[in-house]
Design a protein around this nucleic acid. Sequence first.
RNA 1: UGGGGUGUGGUGUAAUAGGUAACACAGCAGAUUCUGGUUCUGUUAUUCAGGGUUCGAGUCCUUGCACCCCAACCA
Length: 571
Amino acid sequence: MTSPGATPPTSPPNAPATSTPTAANFVRELVRQDNEQGTYGGRVQTRFPPEPNGYLHIGHAKAIHVDFGIAQEFGGVCNLRFDDTNPDTEDTEYVDAIVDDLAWLGYEVGTVLYASDYFEQIYQWAELLITRGLAYVDDQDGETISAQRGGYGKPGVESPYRHRSVDQNLDLFRRMRAGEFADGSRVLRARIDMQHENMQLRDPVMYRIRRGHHHRTHDAWVIYPTYDWAHGQSDAIEGVTHSLCSLEFDSHRPLYDWYLEQLPLPFEQPRQIEFARLELTHTITSKRKLAKLVADGIVDGWDDPRLPTIRALRRRGYPSVAIKDFCTFIGVHKTNSRHQIELLESFVRSELNRTAQRRMAVLRPLKLVVTNWPAGQVEHVTLQNNPENADDGTREVEFTGELWIERDDFMIDAPPKYFRLTPGREVRLRGAYFVTCTGYVTGDDGEVVEVHATYDPDTRGGNAPDGRKVKSTMHWVSAAHAGDATVALYERLFTAEVPGEATGEPFDDLHPASRELLEHCKVEAAVTDTAPGQVVQFERLGYFAHDPREHLLFHRTVGLKDEWANIQKRT
RNA sequence: UGGGGUGUGGUGUAAUAGGUAACACAGCAGAUUCUGGUUCUGUUAUUCAGGGUUCGAGUCCUUGCACCCCAACCA
């Protein structure tokens, strides 16, 4: 017997764990106990087992973090193994995407493993169970089998085929493999206990006949093992010690163990441990629903920045370390819970505040004319690229008498706590001069189309020699030097914290305007040079990610904290 | 209806062995600031319920309650 997973470490031989203090966690505790008792000879091996039928999302990120994290902590290995036992839904397209996302998240994937690599071994083990009278071929259809299974508190009834002879079962099973029977006409079942209080143990199906085209074994098989009769077996073949999965498999654990107990295993019997999957407010992680969002055109594709898929988060500018830090912080539990998306966002802000260079961009432009500025004069002001990191250096930005400022930064009648531009008020234009508002021009509809101000030549660089203060510093872009950019603003895809909580249908809670596309935003020259995928801070607005493909399209990763918005909300 | 899992501020998590219920996010107040950002300080608010053991209970016992999962030839 070969054990492809047991030998080569697929994650770097233990990069030291991050310095982030690791909170107690029950999985680690159980693994540690196994280690101390020498259950697995001090060996720790886990696996991340996605089914290649969809894209990875934030929920998987937690599972990955736990699976790889535990292995790394104990000097073990975590394999990526595709759980590809259902040919109807699976595709190599997903395999490639999952490998790619895993790499982006920062996990080194060595040899990629597949449950389908073990089909022959799993088949041989099925014959072994038959030989020992522990499995039988059932000729009934799915509906009948399901009906016979009974219900909660109601015992099941035995199939009339339950007591066939070993020889007959073996013959039938081999003919199933040979393709003699129609799809769905027969199954192989484990013979356990039709009265068991745990429904999982009422003679579960091990094999079904299905003539789908498998993405790897192609047409070599017409029978496929079910999840329960493949997962633990794959774990055992690879030498997995701790098979970490989500809570809903709790009731499958006795079955996981039962199957393994019947087999001659190449390694110690692996152990399944369940933990709660990650849920976030204002989003969904159901593969089916996510697919429907894409199929119905509610979002633009699997990497639409409003989605919680890894591809989308990536495109939106979420740093992978922020995702990992978040996962470390929330820990591992057995309680179902839903974390506030604000917490994830706080990790994103914290990382981006450290790393993102600052730029000036005006999203909703309003013309500001500096009336005492010498006609045609251009000055250059020097701005820091990142006040949090001096190594990022400085850049020069052109200043002239005609500027773009943010519409929100001017009001004719300013409420008490409004610190920005209003007639008679002096503010600072970042890095340039103090200006005082002297008037404004309105269009036919009464809308302000232009604001007038005078500048104080003594405040060059942004400081007044007489020490006078201003309440506000505003960003700006020289009209003559501005570039044009498109900016996509995103709101939560679902307005409700728990989509579907009220009506049972998550789509009822879709935000009617989750994306706002702003065209002809005015940006300083340096923005034009932003690399594909780069994230920058547009000062006073938020973090924005340059689209990887479309030049000068920016996605708002997350806004800055906005105290003014809170003040407005309150009044 | 049977089985299993889980209950700590608004949210999510801590609390070696029964010994001051702590941290983060969110909120509020203030300081600093050339980003109403960052940083710093202060502050509001918590053990599902009842009973019991104990000098002392989030932790132990007991009786309830609530929520989640399980009756695919999905994973």
